[in-house]
Amino acid sequence: MLTKRIIPCLDVKDGRVVKGTRFVNLKDAGDPVQIASFYGSQGADEIIFLDITASFQKRKTMLEVVEKTAECTFIPLTVGGGIRNVEDIKNLLNSGADKVSLNTAAVENPSLVQIGAEKFGRQCMVVAIDVKKQNIQPEKWEVFTYGGRKATGIDVFEWIKKVEQLGAGEILLTSMDADGTTEGYDLELTRRISEMINIPIIASGGAGTLEHISDVLTRGKADAALAASIFHYNKYSIRELKEYLAKKGIAVRLS
């Protein structure tokens, strides 16, 4: 049976993991290569690096990080953040990334999703979408870009349909309302989108407890759950989470 995936996400800036790393047994707790390997050995199903490097000049650092990670961690690796064109995608894939995640670039230049899918295959094109619920009637979920700073006026359901047509292989959905609250994922939004599309959906934003993750994989109908702080602060290990999910009857990979 196909299992639900658990995906830790690392924010990387200038080649260093920036938030929340309290791994006592790592020599260098800020090294993304070591942390990725650690998560891999714990049973993570995939790894996502989000590059939040501000300066263009330092972007090459990310390629080196990807290259080194691919030498020692043999599970799928997705890289997002700052990807603007086909060249960026190619460089990341050539360095050893398996998928790239597009957010702002997909909104501003939707053909990039299409070209990427045609050139490298749909399976490596993840479209990340940051969404915020607008308090208006009828209710609307709006897509934001630039790390949640810029409102686009785009309705998320229309956008999702469009990116699926363009050739997205997967959707990474972040609820900005839930993100950072540790009060749980936006189950309604996740479920509505999962039922609407035929490609897998990774839910993100809001995980604070093991139950939140279980909820989004069942009631929220997500195919995968992304979490960051819940793992980084060593609150729970990936193994603990998976054993919890397995007890609840959710198919997960335990090895």
């Binding site: 049976m1 196909l2 299992t3 639900k4 995936r5 199903d45 749909r122 399976q123 292989g169 997967e170 599309i197 035929n198 490609i199 897998p200 195919d223 995968a224 990979r253």
Partner: peptide, 10 residues
């Protein structure tokens, strides 16, 4: 069931 078949299976 979604297509592609993506993820870990036995």
């Amino acid at each position: 069931l979604k297509i592609p078949h993506m993820g870990w299976n036995t």
